[in-house]
Structure formats: structure tokens, C-alpha cells
Computed example of a mutant assay.
Amino acid sequence: MHEPHVIGDWQECGDEHAGLRVRVHGLEKAEPPRGRDDSAEGLTYFRFRVTVENRSAEPVGIHLEDGQLDVRTGPDGESAFLDWRNSHFIEGFDVYPLRRATAVLYAAAPESALSLVDIQVQLKADDEWTDRYLWSGDMTVPDGPQGTATRADGTSETLAGQISTFLREQAERGQH
């Protein structure tokens, strides 16, 4: 793992798990459905999704629990509070070919630390560990104008964000 991936990008798993791909996406501020945990007092809640897709020819048993996720925020990489009571994990689910499974997770951190959110995931596939993959995003950058494909994860300042912006502008020019 040399560089983090931008939140929303797919990451292909390594050789021993060929055909599996995973992504972290949907990073946004959101209150948990079953109420705030007392441990998160004074923190800002956010939600994100982890989706696993099976592109192989065989079903794969997927397991993703709180111990397989590490959420860090801010420039110093402080650990975020992962609310396991409100989160929906993937626990021993068989993902068949051309199917997906998604975990919806809730975490909390100080508002001032949400300018940098790093989420590291390590899946267990058929009782074997995959490599660890890291995604990075920013929840403090406002969304783009209504009707555009601007991502809300703050990628505009990164190389990936600049490329996304360029490609989006080229696509818009091609439509007119």
C-alpha cells in the first residue's frame, strides 16, 4: 500500500483473491439510526459504505467486522470512534459471481478533524485475509453545483481529484 485511494474508487484485490474488488464510498455526515452512543458525546457522526464485488466464477464467503476497519481523522491520524451498535457489517455472507455486498458503517470524530478521513479495510474472504487497502477523503469541502458530478469527498486538491475534474469537464464539453 503505497498511496491511499480516493474515497469512491474501486480497488482490485491481490492474486490470491483475484476477482474480488472493494471500495469505500458514500462518506457523509449522518446521525446514526438508533441514536448516538454516549462515548461519542461532542463528536460529529459520519457514515460510509464498504462494498465488496465478486467478479470471479465462484462464490466467496465475505466477513467484515469492526476489527477489520481502522478509521483515522485529521492531520495527526487520530482514531475515530466506530459505532458498532449502529453499523451494519458483513458477517459470513456468500457473495456470488457478479454480485455485491455492502456494509454501512457509522463513526464519529471531532468536527475539526473531518478535513482528512482515512479508512483502512482488510477483508476476510473464504477464511483468508486480503491485503489492507486505504482510502482517503475530506468531508469539509462543499458539494459542487446542483446537477454536476462533483464528488463530496474533497478530491479537488489531490491529483486524483484534478484528473476527475478534467475528465468531467471533457465529458461535459462533449455533450454540448
Rank of each mutant, 00 (worst) to 15 (best):
H2M: 11
P4E: 07
H5P: 00
I7D: 00
G8H: 08
W10T: 10
E12P: 08
G14N: 01
D15Y: 05
H17C: 09
H17T: 10
A18Q: 11
G19T: 12
G19E: 15
G19V: 11
R21A: 13
R23Q: 13
V24D: 02
V24S: 02
G26R: 11
L27H: 02
E28I: 05
A30P: 07
E31N: 09
P32K: 00
P33H: 03
P33F: 02
R34Y: 12
S39A: 13
S39I: 00
L43Y: 10
Y45P: 05
F46P: 08
F46N: 03
R47P: 03
N54E: 15
R55A: 15
R55K: 15
R55C: 15
A57N: 07
P59D: 06
V60D: 12
G61T: 15
I62Y: 03
I62L: 06
G67H: 06
Q68I: 00
Q68E: 13
Q68W: 03
L69M: 11
L69D: 11
D70K: 00
R72K: 14
P75N: 04
P75L: 06
D76H: 02
E78W: 01
S79K: 10
A80F: 04
W84Q: 10
W84P: 02
N86M: 03
S87G: 10
G92H: 07
Y96I: 00
L98Y: 14
L98G: 11
R99S: 15
A101Y: 07
T102W: 11
T102S: 14
A103S: 13
V104C: 12
Y106W: 12
Y106C: 07
S112G: 13
S112H: 13
S112D: 15
A113K: 06
L114N: 01
S115I: 02
L116N: 09
V117E: 00
Q120W: 04
V121T: 11
Q122E: 15
L123T: 09
K124W: 08
A125N: 07
A125F: 04
A125Q: 02
D126K: 00
D127Y: 06
E128Y: 00
E128Q: 09
E128G: 07
W129D: 13
T130M: 12
R132K: 05
Y133W: 08
Y133I: 07
G137Y: 05
G137N: 01
D138E: 06
D138K: 01
D143C: 03
D143R: 08
G144Q: 08
A149D: 13
A152V: 01
D153P: 00
G154E: 04
L159W: 11
A160T: 14
I163Y: 06
T165S: 15
F166M: 07
R168V: 02
R168E: 09
E169D: 15
E172A: 12
R173D: 13
R173C: 03
Q175A: 14
Q175R: 15
Q175V: 06
